[in-house]
Design a protein around this nucleic acid. Sequence first.
DNA 1: TTTTATTTTGCAAGTAACTTGCAAATATAA
DNA 2: TTATATTTGCAAGTTACTTGCAAAATAAAA
Lengths: 142, 142
Amino acid sequence: MKESTTKKLLKERKLRITTVRNEILSIFNDRNYALSFYDLEKELKTKFDTATIYRTINTFVENNIIHQIPLESKTAYYALNSVLEEDENSRKEHIHFLCRICRRTYCLENVIIKDLKINKNFRLESLKIIAEGVCDNCGAIS
Amino acid sequence: MKESTTKKLLKERKLRITTVRNEILSIFNDRNYALSFYDLEKELKTKFDTATIYRTINTFVENNIIHQIPLESKTAYYALNSVLEEDENSRKEHIHFLCRICRRTYCLENVIIKDLKINKNFRLESLKIIAEGVCDNCGAIS
DNA sequence: TTTTATTTTGCAAGTAACTTGCAAATATAA
DNA sequence: TTATATTTGCAAGTTACTTGCAAAATAAAA
Ligand SMILES: [Mn+2]
Ligand SMILES: [Mn+2]
Ligand SMILES: [Zn+2]
Ligand SMILES: [Zn+2]
């Protein structure tokens, strides 16, 4: 991601423009799968403190720049929100695909989620879907 | 749950019959929603050690007696597997419903999961669905 | 451009949610 | 019963994060 793009994004959310924020944003943008703190640390450990990386992740979640993905894993994973969504409420529901071979988690935005018929007396408001299987990359190799 | 039922279940899986195991099994059976370590601790703290409760949870997961539920929450939640399922592979896929009011998580076994059309080149093998909304109990109150 | 106000950062310490090692206690098999 | 294997309690350890505080960086005001 170009630095001008990350700066624009931060300015929109009224966040100060700093090096960690620019760098973390551009790392997220370079990947098409979800990242944990440890993925970020690998690339940033010489430059920034642990607490700073965690605080940046939290700031980004609070400001609707990234979202956490519900997985059974003990460490949290995050991915960029799609750039189209302006505000929190317009955020597009999408599914997460966890590859059982490479363990990467992808956001799939163009899968149509059909309405589920839930037991009566349970009022359904939203759905989170984690699909598991083999990703395009791992399927091609085997 | 009657003690004879819990004993039978443990014997089937070739697990030794102990007091913690009987008690944790019957607590799970008395609830129709998922439990965390802290929920169990509340009822058992005078009787058993922290490590024992954690080890029992892990033993139950390994032996296919309970399952973990993928939530964004930091602490893990577990629920009983349905008694019908004999072995791991026959385990019925079902959805989890998280109530935004009481924060309880329910296993809903009788919701039909329609096949999703995933992006081509992603091979879908299973689905985990977390539905959010208002549960029957909280809906009745309001 | 300097001064000032506000936010962010690094460092160190702290906490929550588990996990592990080991000896004593208990459960099952012999 | 006695022997063997498993489980338990206690204490210590680990992992994944969070917080307090002073120094540094950013942005707004002058
Ligand atoms: Mn996503
Ligand atoms: Mn369930
Ligand atoms: Zn893969
Ligand atoms: Zn409820």
